[in-house]
Design a protein around this nucleic acid. Structure first.
Lengths: 243, 243
DNA sequence: GCAACAAAACATATCAGACAAGTTGAAGAT
DNA sequence: ATCTTCAACTTGTCTGATATGTTTTGTTGC
């Protein structure tokens, strides 16, 4: 068994997130290898997303987040031409489940977080309605960011950490696909007001604790997204001005 | 930007899976760092699951698989006491979707792979019915392995690579939870015959192309699994013989 | 000509020792 | 008591060397 595996087990079994692993010298002595070998093992484990490295201080066990998996997703997206559709199909599966459980389990704090994300979207949409050029683009980026945040907040409220991590991991590619569908000023896609209304409905059902309705609202929201994506990619293939 | 990031981009942008990256010496010259620094970067990227390392030959870009993410899942499972329930909720989301698309898209080869997994389960169940002790345990392990293989085959037939990777990543913890629910000779859980029948129904609907029925069959199959898991964990908390 | 084998070239794995640079905590000065 | 400074600790990187596995090449024997 390699040093990297030993180290991984050590982290999983004994070390809580936030605590730090032994120094390279200690580990080298413990496993009776050179410091170099330890370093390479540490790098490998860090690559898996289990450690945070910083010069001068010992490596810290990382709170699990979806970011490590995000890179993997990015790899699929770039390799597979239909990656964006695969992504949205996975979102349909996970986010409908996420909305279902959020409606059943969300507490006051969870609801507030979702509301805040939606309010932030509203502000960004206000700016978009009046600003032009650079300001408009910046507002649009924010709008997408809070859109993703809205879905992340629902995932968090679902009480299922695995769902949360997976949706976090998808955040970057999702944001990309959002700006892809809303390229230019509503060239494709839907008006911000429509999107906000659609989110508002989801939030309402979650607040009511109506899990079936929340799931249904989420489903139709993501169906819209899929349709828009399909439209964009088709008109793209017909040679429309590209990025 | 670190060497590891450069290398990651190089791999994502230019190198197809199966091709090999430049040698350590080449990379050291290209980025003007020592071979050691290159090695550490390579290890890090390998940790992310993008490379396969072997002594004596250059690192090879890996076909993406869920294995890298599996470790991350394991981390969540071990950290969170309700990890197994989180897992099964995610499975319910993904595998219902997986069965839906498999029913719509599976081709002949995909169907055959699913059938083969089911046949293998039948053989293992036959052995289980007659063998005892060590042989029984071995057959049970095989039974669970083919059970997971059945679900992986459906995921593959769904034509969605992201779903495939995610279900692959969950394979190990799923196998663990299967053997947890079927501890001892049907102490909890269901008889192998029942499980096979349940799988048979799913396969039948996929073959018929009836996506709604396939989804429904998968849902009730996973509901069974959740119920069993809940039963086991409850009797466990009441101090039943463990492991 | 060709197949089998041996050796060279190549590539990674690991070691040792050294120095640079960042972090931390303790001793000393104010 | 607080601030400063410095020493100890720790990680980052370099050089150069040896070990070990893989691939290619060239030679030898048929």
């Amino acid at each position: 068994m390699s040093v990297a595996d030993h180290l991984t087990n050590l982290i999983l079994a004994e070390l809580a997130p936030g605590s730090s692993i032994p120094s390279e010298a200690d580990l080298a002595a413990r496993y009776d290898v050179s410091r170099l070998t330890v370093r390479e093992a540490v790098k490998m484990v860090a690559g898996r997303g289990l450690l945070e490295l910083a010069r001068g201080r010992r490596a810290v066990v990382r709170e699990p987040t979806g970011t490590a998996f995000g890179e993997f997703l990015a790899m699929i997206m770039t390799r597979d031409p239909k990656g964006l559709f695969d992504l949205i199909e996975v979102r349909q599966a996970l986010e409908i489940q996420s909305a279902t459980y959020a409606a059943r389990r969300a507490n006051r704090a969870g609801l507030m977080a979702i509301e805040q994300a939606l309010d932030a979207m509203r502000s960004a949409a206000d700016v978009m309605a009046h600003a032009k050029g650079k300001d408009y683009e910046a507002a649009k980026r924010k709008f997408h960011k809070y859109d993703v945040g809205f879905h992340e907040a629902i995932a968090l409220a679902s009480g299922n950490r695995m769902i949360t991590y997976l949706i976090e991991a998808m955040a970057v590619p999702v944001e990309d696909s959002l700006s892809l569908t809303m390229r230019g000023r509503e060239m494709h896609g839907r008006a911000p007001e429509y999107i906000i209304e659609s989110h508002q409905r989801i939030l309402g059902f979650i607040r009511d604790g109506d899990s079936r309705a929340a799931a249904q609202a989420m489903r139709s929201h993501l169906d819209d997204a899929e349709r828009d994506l399909r439209t964009v990619l088709q008109s793209r293939m017909q040679g429309e001005p590209d990025l």
